[in-house]
Amino acid sequence: MRDAGRRLGGRRNSRGGGGRQDRRARRAGQARGAGRRDPPPARGSRARPRDGTRGSTSRRGALRLEQRRRADSRGVRGRDRRVRADGGLALVPALSLSTLRGFVFDLDGCVWNGDVLNPGAGETLAALHRSGRALAFVSNNSRATGGDLRVRLQHLGVGVAQHVLTPLEIIGEVIRERFGISRVLSIGAPEMGAVIARAGHELVDVKDYRAATVVAVGNDFDLSYERLTAAARAAARGAPLVTPNMDPRLPIEGGDFLPGCGSIVQSVAVAAGVQPVVVGKPEPPLFRMALERLGLTAPTTAMVGDSIPSDIKGARAVGMPTVLYAPAGGAPADAADVIVSSFAELARLAGVG
């Protein structure tokens, strides 16, 4: 059972335990003068569910299942409980990372913060690569392509970064598939505008926002009120609003952060009264592209990330096992299949540490 609040209901006996055969037996016993009587059934008695199946919903509150919510001796928390055939609870081993064939890693907040690798990240990635595991990296970065981030990883000493994906790999294609060749008002980094133009779209200047048929909004370090206004007005006039991601924060070194792409997109969406089309995580395309690049299936490849809404929920939607990187702790016990507080712990669980 996955949800702590769900109940397992039994099936109520419609005769209250006193069926026809019971009454005949009692009458026969009285006729024989026997002093022995069957005890009356308890008021409100209910049958147990059989073979661990859910009974009728008429039995409310019959049995509440308390989930196991504490870490085991190795600090692993996750979906480690099931219902036995007798209605009790049995422990199920947590996901075994040592049997997986591949890992897909988030970057910002997971592998690195700003320009600094998180402790143990480089060593763990190298050990996984030596063990024969396939590795890919998927970021929601709206200011860089996969190639840009691959170079950045290599400069930080991560030489195993071959497959690196960001929403910029597909944003131009998504716009073309959904809205055709478009006139796009691009509010974001020059890199985002460049990939949209390479996909065959025409870029529209801020002053010509009325001509835009699509508005693309990413994380814009040069954001001005004029640019924000142009995006909101174009979207309000009917141009679809497209964004690489809805992440509210961009983690950087020292435990600090910058306002993320989602913060800007929300401002535009609220002012225009529209909902954005999201290209990156948690939507499926980048996860599926990573699996295709690795040549692996979803059940054999874990997603490792620090964001429950983007990394964990997105990966679960495509059938991938999930590992939540939570160095500060405090994550709900059922937030992911496995929760780790460090890369050293991840390496141990994967059998390479």
Results as ranks from 00 to 15, higher is better:
Phe137Gly: 06
Gly120Tyr: 12
Ser58Glu: 15
Ser142Cys: 14
Pro41Lys: 02
Ala94Met: 13
Ala71His: 14
His155Asp: 15
Gly88Ala: 09
Arg152Glu: 13
Val138Thr: 10
Ser58Tyr: 15
Arg26Lys: 07
Arg23Tyr: 03
Leu135Cys: 02
Thr99Lys: 15
Val92His: 04
Gly102Arg: 02
Arg84Phe: 01
Glu123Leu: 11
Pro41Met: 00
His129Ile: 00
Val111Ser: 14
Gly35Arg: 10
Leu135Ala: 02
Leu107Val: 09
Ser96His: 10
Val104Asp: 05
Thr145Asn: 14
Arg79Glu: 02
Gly29Thr: 00
Pro40Lys: 01
Arg36His: 12
Gly87Thr: 02
Ala136Tyr: 03
Leu117Ala: 12
Asp86Asn: 13
Ala47Ile: 00
Arg54Ser: 06
Arg82Tyr: 05
Leu107Gln: 09
Leu97Gln: 09
Asn140Glu: 08
Pro39Val: 00
Gly35Pro: 11
Arg27Ser: 10
Val104Thr: 09
Arg60Gly: 08
Arg32Ile: 00
Asp80Phe: 11
Arg77Ala: 12
Pro119Asn: 03
Cys110Ala: 05
Thr124Ala: 13
Arg133Thr: 05
Gly33Leu: 11
Asp148Phe: 04
Asn113Asp: 15
Arg143Tyr: 12
Ser96Phe: 07
Ala90His: 10
Asp86Glu: 05
Arg27Glu: 01
Arg68Trp: 05
Ala144Tyr: 08
Thr99Pro: 11
Thr145Phe: 08
Gly88Val: 09
Asn113Thr: 14
Val76His: 09
Thr57Met: 11
Gly147Gln: 07
Val76Phe: 09
Arg69Pro: 11
Ala121Trp: 09
Arg79Trp: 14
Arg77Glu: 08
Arg152Gln: 15
Leu89Trp: 06
Glu123Gly: 12
Gly87Val: 00
Ala90Phe: 06
Asp80Gly: 15
Arg74Met: 08
Cys110Arg: 04
Thr53Trp: 04
Ala127Ile: 08
Gly114Glu: 04
Arg150Ala: 08
Ala25His: 01
Gly55Asn: 04
Asp80His: 14
Glu66Thr: 15
Leu95Ser: 02
Val104Ala: 06
Gly55Pro: 11
Thr99Asp: 13
Asn113Lys: 12
Ala127Val: 13
Leu128Glu: 02
Ala85Thr: 07
Arg77Gln: 15
Arg50Thr: 08
Asp86Gln: 10
Ser96Ala: 14
Thr124Val: 08
Gly75Leu: 10
Arg79Gln: 07
Ala126Trp: 06
Thr57Lys: 14
Arg50Val: 07
Gly88Lys: 11
Gly132Trp: 09
Gly102Ala: 02
Arg143Met: 14
Arg70Thr: 12
Gly55Cys: 03
Ser96Gly: 13
Ser131Leu: 07
Gly102Asn: 00
Arg32Asp: 09
Thr145Ile: 07
Arg26Glu: 01
Ala90Ile: 03
Ser142Leu: 11
Ala25Asn: 03
Gly75His: 08
Leu128Gly: 03
Arg24Ala: 00
Gly132Cys: 13
Arg130Ser: 10
Asp38Cys: 01
Leu156Gly: 13
Ser96Asp: 15
Ser73Cys: 04
Ala136Gln: 03
